[in-house]
Simulated assay, not measured.
Amino acid sequence: MSVHEFSVKTASGLTTRLSRYEGKVLLIVNTATKCGFTPQLGDLQRLQERYKEQGFQVLGFPSNQFDDQEPLKDGEITEFCALNHGVNFPIFKKIDVRDESAHPLFTYLASQKPFEGFDERHPVAKLLLSILHDRYTHYLPGDSIKWNFTKFLIDGDGNVIKRYESTAEPIDIEADIEKLLEAQAV
């Protein structure tokens, strides 16, 4: 199985298959517009611009499952991301990314790469851990998505290569992206 076997809905509600990205290195991210990690959208866009010509694509999937940090409607999300962060990579229809209502894509992604913890050196990590321990303890066990801006690096064949938690800045993923793009170019 690979991510290419999944179908998703665009922000406008059209169904598309991820097989359309076959051969590209993907970074799949669950996003939110009102999150402490929302500024990562700008860095994700910079990665998109830097590596697009080499076969790289960022895919954003908004979710409102984490402290109601995605209150906007689908079209509003796309507009917010474009106007405030210059985003031109695809932002798909708002979905659930964890629990029983999770989109099958995110259930699959989480099953392929386990949760390995947050980078506690990140300036927001202590606050995030406090919120999780105080209000969302049921999010902590297992490998499910823990918060907004969990990122999955996918190779051109649709295999999940690596998982990065919210506290991993997009720029810190750059070396892994370059390595995967180089391996695919050979």
Rank of each mutant, 00 (worst) to 15 (best):
S2M: 03
S2K: 03
S2W: 06
H4P: 04
H4V: 03
H4C: 04
F6R: 01
S7M: 08
K9W: 06
K9P: 05
K9T: 09
T10N: 08
S12M: 13
G13F: 04
L14E: 15
T15K: 08
R17N: 15
L18T: 01
L18Y: 06
S19E: 13
Y21I: 02
E22S: 12
E22K: 13
E22V: 08
G23V: 07
L27E: 00
I28H: 00
N30T: 00
A32P: 05
A32C: 09
K34A: 09
C35V: 01
G36P: 00
F37M: 03
T38K: 03
T38L: 05
L41C: 02
G42T: 08
L44W: 01
L44C: 02
R46D: 08
R46C: 10
R46M: 13
K52P: 08
E53D: 14
E53R: 12
Q54F: 07
G55L: 04
V58S: 10
V58W: 07
V58C: 09
V58G: 09
L59D: 01
F61L: 03
P62C: 06
S63C: 10
N64A: 08
D68W: 08
Q69W: 01
K73E: 14
D74N: 13
D74I: 09
E76Q: 10
E76H: 06
T78G: 10
F80R: 04
A82T: 06
A82M: 06
L83W: 03
G86M: 05
N88D: 15
I91P: 00
I91R: 05
I91G: 01
F92T: 04
F92A: 03
K93A: 12
K94M: 02
I95M: 05
D96I: 03
R98Y: 01
D99K: 12
E100T: 13
A102M: 00
H103R: 00
H103Y: 01
P104L: 11
F106L: 10
F106G: 08
F106M: 11
T107D: 14
Y108P: 07
L109P: 12
L109E: 12
A110P: 06
S111I: 11
Q112R: 09
F115K: 09
E116Q: 15
G117H: 11
D119Q: 14
R121Y: 13
R121N: 15
P123S: 08
A125E: 05
L129V: 12
I131G: 09
H133P: 11
H133T: 14
L140K: 15
P141V: 07
G142P: 12
G142C: 10
G142K: 04
D143L: 06
S144A: 15
S144G: 14
S144E: 14
K146E: 11
W147I: 09
K151N: 02
K151F: 01
I154M: 07
D155M: 02
D155N: 03
G156C: 05
D157R: 11
G158E: 05
K162S: 06
K162I: 01
R163L: 02
Y164G: 00
E165R: 02
T167I: 07
E169I: 08
E169K: 14
P170D: 00
D172Y: 13
D172G: 13
D172T: 14
D172K: 15
I173S: 03
A175L: 12
D176S: 05
K179C: 10
K179Q: 12
L180R: 06
L180M: 08
L181C: 06
A185W: 07
A185T: 12
A185G: 11
